[in-house]
Nucleic acid binder design. Structure first.
Length: 435
DNA sequence: TTAGGGTTAG
């Protein structure tokens, strides 16, 4: 796109405000923030004043999670006397909510109201959706009251956001009631509404209710999509309904439906968990043969089951295949591989793989470090466990309950007393706790 | 000129 500008310059055409805006927005939309900023500065150099539209850059920054930078741009905008509109406020509120800066989001929202900008359903939805995802459904519900007070009508997405909140909290009765409320409010629940509820039932282990709702969805002429089928398929496997799950999978295949990576990961995992490793392996190979774009989750599912069934060579092939497919191992892959090395007693190799992981830029998570500490403590390798414990501290993670109780039992055993002293100081108080 | 909701691995 820069070349386009060069081309114009070469032909003696100077880009106007509109040209710059289109290019900037295209960059911003594609997440190419540096390029967008470059256009932003170029506009200024040419004496064109970036207006509200130009601040699509703010939106791009928010989407990338660079909310502080977005706020700087916002303040700069105010200082230059540009009046922000609801789009800018929405972008910032979205950015602030997603990084958990709730107070700042609330402050900005109030500021918007004070400026006499009337909120729309979308900005409410942005806040409610994030609250619900965080499990703060009651706070989201209080926003519904505010919506009613200021005369903003809830739309399908408002309801769906709330349904997410109640479903996540396992409050399926209230979630289902919202479906009725929608209809009463003159809205038609869409496939997403049903998907959220189906997932809620499956998560709660209520597969029969999920299947019932799925039938109701069909009766109400809401067309299920691949996501719907994936949710139900996963639910059937999770609740141990193996033959029903397989039957559904076969029907999906036969009906010519376009299966996606989720479907395959669900079926591979389902087969693996039900001792059908060979069948899973065959499907995996046929996907590779068809050049279907797999993801790291596919590999993790396969590596996990191959490790459990002791197929070491297949594991190594699988690990190598990850990069051959243009992917990279993630924290789960490394954890599985390292756990296995520890299990085999190949401790130096496990250290090496951990270093390789860090070198590759893959950051260990709390789950990984806790489980490595436990495995090492079980083996009586207190020194190595101590090194990972220090990492947990460095990264400000906490010990899981299982890790703490294992530490207590290590301290209580005579033969480990000496080594236990080498653990980080902050854990020495555990010596006082009796098993 | 811009913006919100649903699925998979440990």
């Amino acid at each position: 796109m820069h070349r386009l500008l060069d081309l114009m310059a070469g032909n003696g055409i100077s880009p106007n405000h509109h040209t710059f805006t289109i290019i900037l927005c295209a960059y911003a939309k594609g997440g190419m923030i540096d390029e967008a900023m470059h256009i932003f500065h170029q506009m200024r150099q040419q004496g064109l004043s970036p207006d509200v539209v130009t601040y699509a850059a703010i939106d791009a920054l928010c989407k990338l999670g660079k909310v502080d930078e977005a706020m700087l741009k916002f303040n700069q905008m105010i200082n230059e006397g540009v009046t922000p509109n609801i789009v800018v406020f929405s972008s910032l509120v979205y950015g602030l909510c997603t990084v958990g800066k709730w107070e700042k989001a609330e402050e900005l929202f109030s500021e918007m109201l004070n400026q006499g900008i009337h909120p729309n359903a979308m900005i409410f939805n942005t806040i409610m959706c994030n609250l619900c995802r965080e499990g703060r459904v009651m706070k989201a519900q209080s926003l519904v009251d505010l919506m009613v007070r200021v005369g903003v009508k809830l739309d399908v997405i408002s309801y769906n956001s709330l349904i997410v909140g109640y479903s996540l909290a396992g409050r399926m009765k209230e979630a289902m009631k919202l479906l009725d409320d929608m209809v009463r409010g003159g809205l038609k629940p869409d496939a997403c509404s049903y998907n959220i509820l189906l997932h809620g039932y499956c998560r709660a282990g209520r597969i029969d209710d999920a299947v019932r709702l799925f039938r109701e969805m069909l009766r109400n002429e809401v067309k299920p999509g691949i996501v719907t089928y994936n949710i139900v398929l996963h639910g059937l496997f999770q609740s141990g309904k193996f033959s029903e799950a397989k039957e559904l999978y076969l029907n999906m295949t036969k009906s010519g439906m376009q299966l996606d990576i989720y479907t395959y990961n669900i079926i591979l995992n389902g087969l693996c968990k039900n001792n059908c490793v060979d069948e899973a392996f065959r499907i995996f190979q046929s996907l590779c043969f068809k050049d279907f774009q797999l993801d790291i989750i596919t590999f993790n599912i396969m590596i996990n089951v191959l490790l459990k069934s002791g197929r070491k060579e297949d594991v190594m092939d699988m690990f190598t295949a990850i990069s051959a497919k243009g992917l990279g191992p993630d924290v789960v892959t490394y954890r599985l591989m390292i756990q296995n090395l520890i299990k085999e007693g190949l401790l130096e190799e496990s250290d090496n793989l951990f270093s390789a992981m860090e070198k590759s830029g893959c950051i260990p998570d709390s789950f990984m470090l806790n489980s490595l500490v436990r495995r090492l403590l079980h083996r009586g390798d207190i020194m190595r466990a101590g090194a990972y414990l220090s990492k947990i501290d460095e990264m400000n993670f906490s010990l899981e309950a299982a890790t703490t109780s294992l530490l207590i039992s290590v301290f209580s055993r005579e033969e480990y007393q000496h080594h236990a002293k080498s653990l980080p100081e902050k854990y020495h108080f555990l010596k006082e706790i009796k098993k």
